[in-house]
């Protein structure tokens, strides 16, 4: 009985192939292992604010948390509260209607804060550049420390950018 159940399980549940972006994820994990994390202690909490995106960047921000990219393995995680956050991650154009909410989020975060603009829209307004409904990219509202371009940037590019930030602030190799 036990053996037949075991045999059945072995036969009917093949391990799903993990081919999606696996090599990129592996390369990124290796980079982190080579990194000294004295200042940040391998832990960085991110507050995400959509300041006027098309929701494409949000899809890829969700993707960096799936089991292929697994953001938490790098000590990075998203937090709902700006009070707990070290990083303010901004996607989308700087829509005029979102400027106040974005400023309030920044004001609610304890210093020091790293501000990251993710996606072409947050970098400089992207295709919407010049629209009167927006003021440009995230740096038209706040000082931005790091920009990750792409429309939308791939999960690999986003994690790559986040690790660059850690490297820069740890004097990393």
């Amino acid at each position: 009985m036990v053996w037949s159940t075991l045999a059945q399980h072995l036969l009917t549940k093949p391990r799903a192939p993990r081919e999606a972006g696996h090599s990129t994820a592996a390369a990124l994990a290796e980079r982190l292992q080579n990194l000294s994390n004295e200042k940040l202690g391998r832990s960085l909490a991110i507050r995400h604010v959509d300041a006027g995106s098309c929701n494409g960047c949000e899809l890829e921000l969700r993707a960096i948390q799936n089991m292929v990219y697994d953001l938490t393995q790098y000590g990075l995680s998203f937090t709902p509260s700006p009070r707990h956050a070290d990083v303010l991650l901004i996607t989308g154009v700087a829509a005029r209607n979102m400027a106040e909410a974005l400023r309030q989020t920044r004001a609610a975060m304890p210093d020091p804060v790293f501000t990251i603009a993710v996606g072409d829209c947050a970098v400089d307004g992207g295709v919407f550049k010049g629209s009167p409904a927006i003021t440009g990219g995230a740096d038209s509202i706040l000082t931005v420390d790091l920009m990750i371009s792409g429309c939308p940037p791939t999960p690999g590019q986003i994690i790559d950018g986040l690790l660059s930030l850690i490297e820069a602030h740890t004097g990393g190799k």
């Binding site: 829509a95 005029r96 629209s131 009167p132 409904a133």
Partner: peptide, 11 residues
């Protein structure tokens, strides 16, 4: 709503 208004139609 209206927070993500980007003026797309005008563009």
């Amino acid at each position: 709503l209206g927070y993500t208004h980007k003026g797309t139609l005008a563009l």
